[in-house]
Amino acid sequence: MNILELEHVTKKYGAFTAVDDLSLSVEEGKVLSLLGPSGCGKTTTLRIIAGFTSPGDGIVRIAGENVGQLKPYERNVGLLFQDYALFPHMTVAQNVAYGLRRRGRSAGEIPVRVKKMLSLVQLNGMDDRYPTQMSGGQQQRVALARALATDPQIILLDEPLSALDAKLRLELRVELKEILRSVGTTTIVVTHDQEEALSLGDEVIVMRAGKIAQRGTPIEIYDAPADRFVAEFVGRSNWFNGSARGRLQDGSTNYLIGQGLEIRSSRQRRDGDAILCVRPENIEIVAADAAVKDSGLNRIPGTVVDVAPLGADIHVVIEYADKSRLLAIRKNARTAVGFEPGTLVQAIFAPGDVLVFPNQHS
């Protein structure tokens, strides 16, 4: 069943529309990521679900009940704030117990529940510590334990890992996913971090200007973006202006991209002018005179202008044709050995890796 339903929800602040006729539903036990740039409406949507912001129009249902008139504390919703919002004068145990006391849980039940939640987030033995005595990662766990303690129907996570450094953010992202899976609570994650959204969510909604630009699984969002906005926002992309030159026998289409260069796509077919997209990680680099066995691959000759080793990845920038450039990302630095700046190379990629979008001016 759908535990959460938004129907035609709109929220305006003066002349600015933060959420524009938004409708969505979330199945019980699923994790949904709301992803998008600042100002796209994702945080306003979260606040409307929580009850901190009332929609100007539309209906919010939780477990089938219209909660539009209910206060935040009257909704069975847990919320993990971006800054954690822990009470500094309370111990860890008191912070986790706060919501339980507000909901009138019995004196005998509260310490048992607190102990269980602290064990879940791996904070055993830290009951008597204060937030100021804990690291950022530990504070985040306390906030999560407090949000889960009341056994909410929905838990809302507002940029849950943004206050942490990169290494700790990656570690806790894995732990957070495991915890959410173990408790099975329906979860809405709001984030502008694409990796966070894709890794945590069973489904991802990409928002733009208060509307849903695309909804799908993480793989669908990345491999089959609905439009150029989604493709640009989620992941890196190389872009080419192309003009269709005709369809081939295998069903693919050739596109002229300038100065006699053509690339072929076996994805969406589009006549006339188009915008073509190739992800950097789908591009192989070989020497300019290297023989390529598969004649069906796209090949763009060019010159290496920059090589940037970035740990596990290496970024290679190639200049081709009329000073245009493309980026190739390799996962192993050894694959780029010998391709120093000035080296003549070929950028190679499959027709199935070429996404096609309408030209904005066509």
Score class of each variant (00 low, 15 high):
G235F: 09
D289H: 06
S25L: 00
E203Y: 11
R334I: 15
G68Q: 09
I110L: 05
T303N: 08
K323Q: 14
A85G: 01
D313N: 12
D273Y: 02
V9F: 05
D250F: 11
A63D: 15
F349D: 11
V278P: 00
I188S: 05
E28A: 15
Q140S: 03
V60H: 13
S38W: 06
A213Q: 04
E27I: 04
P111M: 09
V9H: 10
G104N: 04
T343D: 05
P131A: 02
T187M: 05
Y13M: 10
N282R: 13
Y98K: 05
T132R: 11
R245M: 13
V337N: 11
R247Q: 14
A287C: 01
E340S: 12
S199I: 13
L161M: 14
L79M: 14
G99F: 09
T17A: 05
E175L: 05
D223R: 15
R103K: 13
L100M: 01
E196A: 12
G56T: 07
E65Y: 01
D165S: 06
T44V: 02
K331G: 15
S362C: 07
D322I: 05
V114G: 02
R330F: 04
L200Y: 04
R236E: 15
G216M: 03
D83A: 00
Q69Y: 07
A312C: 01
G64D: 10
R228K: 13
A291L: 15
A321K: 08
L261N: 13
N298A: 06
G39H: 03
D158L: 00
L180W: 08
A226Q: 02
V356N: 05
D165T: 07
A143R: 01
